[in-house]
Nucleic acid binder design. Sequence first.
DNA 1: TATTGTTATACTCTATAACTATA
DNA 2: TATAGTTATAGAGTATAACAATA
Lengths: 149, 149
Amino acid sequence: MGATAGDASGLTSTVVFRLGTLGTVVTDRFTREIEGLGLKPKHVGLMAALGRAAVASQQELAARMGVAPSLMVSLADHLEDLGAVQRVRDPRDRRRQVLTLTEEGQRLLDRCTSMARTLDEELMAGLTEKQRKALAEALHVMAKRAGLP
Amino acid sequence: MGATAGDASGLTSTVVFRLGTLGTVVTDRFTREIEGLGLKPKHVGLMAALGRAAVASQQELAARMGVAPSLMVSLADHLEDLGAVQRVRDPRDRRRQVLTLTEEGQRLLDRCTSMARTLDEELMAGLTEKQRKALAEALHVMAKRAGLP
DNA sequence: TATTGTTATACTCTATAACTATA
DNA sequence: TATAGTTATAGAGTATAACAATA
């Protein structure tokens, strides 16, 4: 025994490593799943943000999602093309574009949510009900502390 | 109550969403942390893979990490420049480049592991010891099922 | 002819900077 | 002059395809 150089279980067993690698795998999987809807993860993230806030300017949404305003433009463009969001100029400040989720957008978001739930099931197949609850709670606490929804 | 359209807590509370977003945040944080060592996450992943396997050809490592062989070349190039890995031609099959972790590589890997542990602490600051154990176990089970180390 | 590693090229994602219109 | 949104441009990261050496 002793400090065998070459044992990297140290790194790979950290939460940082596991969250990073699992996050990538899961996101890739989700990306393939929503591809048929003409969506990428960021589009879904934007719809989810709109689902919570109901109404917000592009700048506010960009700040909330931590992306550049220029990226918000192309995300909104694409969702508008799909009929998932509406752009309305704020009459009080005509510089602001206010985004709202349409009924079609809500339907798309619902389908994505359903797909995510199916993936959740697959992902947690090896866990007991108790373990799933504990996992969900731990992720929730960490997400809030990190300023995530 | 009722089915209020616009409530997206459905999506954002899935494990898929939480793993994806937390994975990104945590990886970005780790990336900044190791920047001073001249490393990117993939370099660390390669060193960790070498730490476990001790010796492997570039093709084997590329397959294990799920990256293109061409990317393995540049990762190995960079680590070789840092003195973290050695390339040795397999005498039995001179096409194969066998990679091994040097002592310097082990030192670098150890420092990265230490940084990851510190981040783990920060990340799980809001969790009880019991919750941390439960989280680690759940992540471990899911990682194995996903074919991750 | 098939395989390993390498190099050349192209594609995706996203940020920064320049620009337009409103304020 | 400052800000919201847009457009143009550039950089990072990585894959695919073409190539060289070896089997």
